[in-house]
Design a protein around this nucleic acid. Structure first.
Lengths: 243, 243
DNA sequence: ACCCCGACTGAACAAGTGTTTAGCATGTTG
DNA sequence: CAACATGCTAAACACTTGTTCAGTCGGGGT
């Protein structure tokens, strides 16, 4: 009801050809990527000629720009006017309510992030900023643990969240949900472990933390940073080796 | 010294043309992606004709397969024979020691994951399994917190780690390292916050955890899963709303 | 009535693609 | 020496790509 901007439940016929082309392009870009989709393919699923596509949009690149604006711009817009700090939550919940409707938009966003579109970068940056604000507020009101670097923590959490979008297929496969509707069951399966991780952490003590602190203290800036990232889970396997 | 399989310090001249083509293809695939790179571009940087590429490899697709095998296969191989459970750690540390040498391989792997190559999927699945084993061992020996779903936790952590590869450019940009050598400074900046997060968690109490548990208990399986994932950080913002 | 302007199409173009073909060396084998 | 395989190339082929070019259709405005 509230989302007629991002999700497009519009009837098939009473749309202008221009809108039909845009929607078809969004579907194709989301499913096959920008480079792989041809103007003729878009024209076919839109039921028009290839020339009409460029007649309306000028070029394939400008068509992409318009699709970016339509999908991602609307995502950010609906997120912004719904409450100030954590307005994104409404969108997220609305998505989780029925992922099928947003499937195309999520796939499109994922492509935009992977292909590093201007709109995709803008989206990522916006969410990072928003997340940082949330974290700082959470630390201030005591609901979240203090961090040595809230900005970096925000980046970390944002990328983790976005990775759930860009790697849906890998997620589903690793969990055994191959054929099923990507997302629904996968998200449900990941929900609890994710919150557990965010509540209790992974490690039981500060062994790894201290090792990391020492390693970073030793190497001030330019040289190497041994044994810290990006797979912190591995550290434990040589715990006694606390040199 | 120990890595002459993944990193290629080989002198320029004494390589067979076949190897030259393979290496050139790896660079191009890593930097521009599979679809965007043309056989002629590969041939040019390899200093040979385009026909020779297909003469040696049969087709572009088979060339890709061979590059996959060479880069990713070697990654997995060197990871496997170095200690059994957490053998990957050696590779990771070797990478963190001097990321520049592995830059191409990391970029290549990232592409393989994004483009969902067979080898890329295999790599992801392998690391998930390996991570799951590590987590189960860590829980058993008390160094890690118990999880309601170790498999899902392993998937979560793996995807987070891999996201650091597939989203290097976004990471760097969000942290302000635009022009610098992608990785080095970014990794250093993220190391401590990441371990902090894995040690103490994000939330100070179990409010969000309980909310999530209740939400999952209410909706058993088929229907919607409101307010849980994939952005758990947002939950806090309506803490008092503990309906 | 004219004209024009917009939406729209089919055909053609130029460039780029992966792949094929024929052929040139060159060295090895009978 | 002849025959042949091998590493290699230039040219061409078949095809797809994004884009351009007339040109048709139809409805308003004057």
């Amino acid at each position: 009801m509230l989302n007629m901007r991002t999700a497009r439940p519009s009837p098939p016929e009473d749309l202008t050809a221009r809108a039909l082309i845009r929607d078809a392009a969004i579907v194709h870009f989301a499913r096959d990527g920008f480079r792989k989709t041809s103007l003729r393919a878009i024209a076919t699923t839109a039921g028009v000629s290839a020339s009409l596509v460029v007649h309306h949009f000028g070029s394939k690149e400008r068509l992409r720009a318009e699709c970016d604006e339509f999908v991602i711009g609307n995502m950010l817009a609906t997120a912004h006017d719904k409450a100030s700090p954590a307005g994104l939550q409404a969108v997220i919940q609305s998505y989780l309510a029925n992922p099928a409707e947003y499937e195309v938009d999520v796939a499109y966003l994922s492509r935009a992030i992977s292909e590093e579109t201007a709109a995709g970068q803008n989206f990522v940056d916006t969410i990072v900023d928003e997340t940082e604000a949330i974290i700082r507020a959470g630390i201030a009101d005591g609901s979240m643990n203090p961090s040595s670097d809230p900005r970096a923590e925000a980046v970390l959490i944002t990328m983790t969240s976005l990775a759930m979008m860009t790697m849906t297929s890998h997620l589903a496969r690793a969990l055994g949900f191959e054929g099923r509707g990507l997302g629904q069951e996968t998200m449900r399966r990941l929900a609890l472990p994710s919150v557990e991780l965010y509540t209790h952490g992974l490690y039981t003590d500060e062994t790894v933390l201290n090792i990391t602190r020492n390693a970073l203290a030793v190497t001030p800036e330019p040289a190497s940073v041994p044994g810290a990232e990006p797979m912190p889970a591995r550290e434990y396997s040589r715990r006694e080796d606390t040199r």
